[in-house]
């Protein structure tokens, strides 16, 4: 089923690439259509969840991470991990003084 180049590198089958593209298109449709429903605070997390699944599909199949050396995936994922730390700490920090700036914070 899986093809390889002469030097033994994995070649993604066209069927798989088309399948991933269709999955990404469905994901896009899904992201747009869930915004018509009101899940309250969950909306953003549902949206981010779908977007992340799409990003993982792109990474695993379009970017060949699935067949690549794991270290490459490690490098890439670590960037996201550090970004999460960055965002997390920035939010924690700003949450500490928002009640001073805006009376009544946090909302509701």
């Amino acid at each position: 089923m899986s093809e390889h180049t002469e030097s033994g590198v994995h070649v993604a089958s066209l069927k798989l690439l088309v399948g991933v593209m269709i999955a990404l298109m469905i994901g896009t449709w899904l992201t747009v259509s869930v915004t018509h429903f009101d899940f309250g605070v969950l909306n953003i997390w549902i949206g981010l969840g779908i977007a992340t699944v799409k990003a993982i599909l792109v990474g695993l199949y379009f970017m060949h991470l699935r067949w690549d050396k794991p270290f490459n995936a490690f490098v890439f994922i670590s960037a996201f991990a550090f970004l999460a730390l960055f965002i997390g700490f920035a939010l924690m920090d700003s949450a500490h003084y928002q009640d001073v700036i805006i009376p009544g914070w946090p909302l509701s």
């Binding site: 690549d68 490459n72 490098v75 890439f76 996201f80 970004l83 965002i87």
Partner: peptide, 25 residues
């Protein structure tokens, strides 16, 4: 080449990361 590219892409994520932090906060 691949490893170098992945390192570059990691810096790209961090490059946009600053803007994502501004957005989130």
């Amino acid at each position: 080449a691949k490893l170098g590219m992945w390192l570059f892409l990691a810096t790209e994520i961090l490059f946009f990361g600053g803007l994502f932090v501004a957005y989130t906060v």
